[in-house]
Amino acid sequence: MIELSPGPVPTLVDLRRAQAREALLRSELDRVRKAALAWRSGLGGLLVALVGFGLIKGRSDISGLEEGWAVVVGSLLGGALVTGVWGALAILRAAHGRPRVAEMADLPPLAVLDHREALAAAKALRAGIVLTLGCVGFLVAAVGVTWYGPVAREPALVVRTSVGGTCGTFVRLQGQSIVVRSKSGEVTVPLSSVTQIGGAVRC
């Protein structure tokens, strides 16, 4: 329980401080809403700029990446989606509030409600900023890996003859022969000597 007692006579400095605090509280919710709108616009602009950055074309298809790296890009894009949606919702919550129905009996005075909402909005805004920047980070990483990740190797061709085998990539058919590029260079194998042709992930 809190007890009240008369205080000392305040000075004009105390008055100005109390007036400033009162004005700060009175405008608190408006200020946090405006801050959220400004951040929403700024972060939206950042994402648009990022899309523009993506127009400077590098590789744009993850099917050209080695399988493991394609999974990495997929995970990064998944992370970008989750943080982007979560961040956008948090910033929208900060800017516009959360629709909610409350019991009348539980409602505190408006000033307390506004203050409570302002603190919740500020918390949502901070989370939204971090999450949206996280989304940007994930997107940049995904684009970077797509551009500079290792290229998927072509499947290898294994040509077997009665005297041995050659592993490499298919080059062309030449007359009655097949030409395969192996580590030691192009090898021409007469089709008449081939006993088996098969595929392999790598030689």
Binding site: I2, E3, L4, S5, V9, P10
Partner: peptide
């Protein structure tokens, strides 16, 4: 304006 004391 005035000052008021708050005590637990």
């Amino acid at each position: 304006f005035w000052a008021i004391g708050l005590r637990e």
